[in-house]
Computed example of a mutant assay.
Amino acid sequence: MTDEIITLADDSDLAHLIDLLDMLRGPDVAPFWGEGDHSIGEKFASRLRPILNGQGRGHDVDYLAVYVLKYLGKGNTHVPEEQITKWLRGVNGLPAAGHAWVEDATRTAWTLVARYSLPRWRGYRGAPGQDWLSPS
Rank of each mutant, 00 (worst) to 15 (best):
M1R: 13
M1L: 14
M1H: 14
T2V: 10
D3Y: 10
E4D: 13
E4M: 08
I5D: 07
I5K: 15
I6V: 14
A9D: 13
A9T: 12
A9V: 07
D10K: 04
D11Y: 02
S12M: 10
S12C: 07
L14I: 01
L14M: 01
A15F: 03
A15S: 06
A15N: 04
D19L: 11
L20E: 10
L21F: 04
D22R: 08
G26L: 08
V29S: 08
G34P: 02
G34Q: 05
G34M: 01
G36R: 10
G41V: 03
G41E: 02
K43M: 10
K43C: 06
F44Y: 11
S46V: 03
S46L: 06
L48W: 01
I51H: 02
L52K: 07
G54V: 03
G54P: 05
R57L: 06
G58W: 00
D60N: 07
D60G: 00
D62M: 11
L64D: 00
A65V: 11
V66Q: 13
Y67R: 07
L69A: 04
K70I: 12
Y71K: 08
Y71R: 10
L72T: 06
G73F: 06
K74Y: 13
K74L: 11
G75Q: 01
N76R: 01
T77K: 15
T77V: 14
H78N: 14
H78R: 14
V79N: 15
V79Y: 09
Q83F: 08
I84F: 04
K86E: 15
L88A: 03
G90D: 05
V91C: 06
N92L: 09
N92E: 12
N92M: 08
L94G: 03
L94M: 11
L94W: 10
A97R: 08
H99V: 10
H99T: 14
W101L: 03
D104S: 15
A105L: 01
A105T: 01
T106C: 04
T106Y: 07
R107H: 10
R107G: 11
R107M: 11
R107S: 13
R107Y: 09
T108Q: 09
A109I: 07
A109W: 08
A109Q: 12
A114R: 13
A114M: 11
A114T: 12
R115Y: 03
R115V: 01
Y116S: 07
S117D: 09
Y124D: 14
A127C: 05
A127E: 13
P128A: 10
W132M: 12
W132N: 14
L133N: 04
L133Y: 05
S134T: 10
